[in-house]
Amino acid sequence: MDKPLKTPPPYPIASVDHALRAATILQMEGGATVSQIAERLGVARSTAHRILAMLVYRDFAVQDEDRLYRAGPVLELAAHSQSLVSRLRTAALPHLHRVVDLLDETANLTVRTGDTARFIASVECRQALRVGSREGMVFPAHRTTGGLLLLAGLSDEELDEVYAAERYRDRPADRPDLARLRAELKKLRRNGFAVNKERSERGLIAVGVPVRDRDGTALAGLSVSMPGVRYDPHRLQSLVTALSAAARALEDDLAEQH
């Protein structure tokens, strides 16, 4: 049976339509220049530039060293792992709620795309002073607990590719010190958990563990975030134990879905 023709909305918004079409082009066709987007949309080059700048700002696009625009973290997640991310989030939420009930701190699940980490699920605790939900937010991977856990699963060659100098030609200050990062990731792999002290936000401390697939590949980072004034180093082991139990239970649920 043929699908019915789509009827345009009665009050179309041209700017929204242009942005959505541009995002679709980047996701489906791999990339485009400002001139190509302008030609495809039938708009002025200056208009195309503003559209792409907004897509970059909202992480729907990135601009590489050749000034070509490509799909950004949001679209990459949808392109290569939409079903996995959706499955991860759905399976994780009950476990995040149990972690919050047990520890009374905000719990998060994070995935990585390139050099960024995205919070795909977040459950706030009930304390008056608490870390708010970060669901949907994107941060540099090396500044988040989950991002560090997932970077730790990369080989030296893969890490070099993620942080290749040419990718940071226009923003060298954003590129981490790789020697220091490698040393930190080595320690993280040895410990099996990550502690993040104010790397993404002042006054915030987070502790996390990886969530792995059946073959041992790290799929996500499971963490709790809390105000620094409430963090007690003597409590670290109990935090890690609770998070590890939740991660193993989540892994079992994911394995049963295969």
Rank of each mutant, 00 (worst) to 15 (best):
S81H: 10
V195E: 08
R118P: 00
Q63D: 04
V224A: 05
V123S: 00
L55G: 03
F60R: 02
A23L: 03
L236A: 11
I13D: 14
P140M: 08
R214T: 15
A48M: 01
S225V: 00
E158D: 13
L109N: 06
A249S: 15
G208A: 09
G203C: 03
H18L: 14
A246R: 00
R40Y: 01
D156R: 13
E256F: 04
H49L: 13
D215Q: 10
A179S: 11
H258Q: 09
G31P: 00
S155D: 08
F139L: 15
T90N: 02
V74H: 09
G114N: 08
D59C: 08
T47Y: 09
K3Y: 15
S223Y: 06
T217R: 11
R118W: 13
K187E: 12
L243E: 02
H258Y: 09
Q127F: 06
P140A: 12
M1P: 02
R134H: 15
A117V: 10
P9C: 08
D2R: 10
P233T: 07
E65Y: 15
A117F: 11
R182G: 00
A53K: 12
L239V: 05
D177C: 01
T113R: 05
E166S: 06
R126D: 06
R171C: 14
L159M: 09
P210G: 02
K187N: 00
C125K: 07
A121Q: 03
V211Q: 00
E29F: 15
T7D: 05
R248N: 06
P10C: 05
R126P: 01
D104V: 01
D64V: 07
L103P: 02
E39C: 00
G31W: 02
E76R: 15
Y57H: 10
S244N: 07
S223T: 03
V211I: 08
V16R: 08
P176Q: 08
Y168W: 14
A206R: 05
E76F: 09
I37W: 03
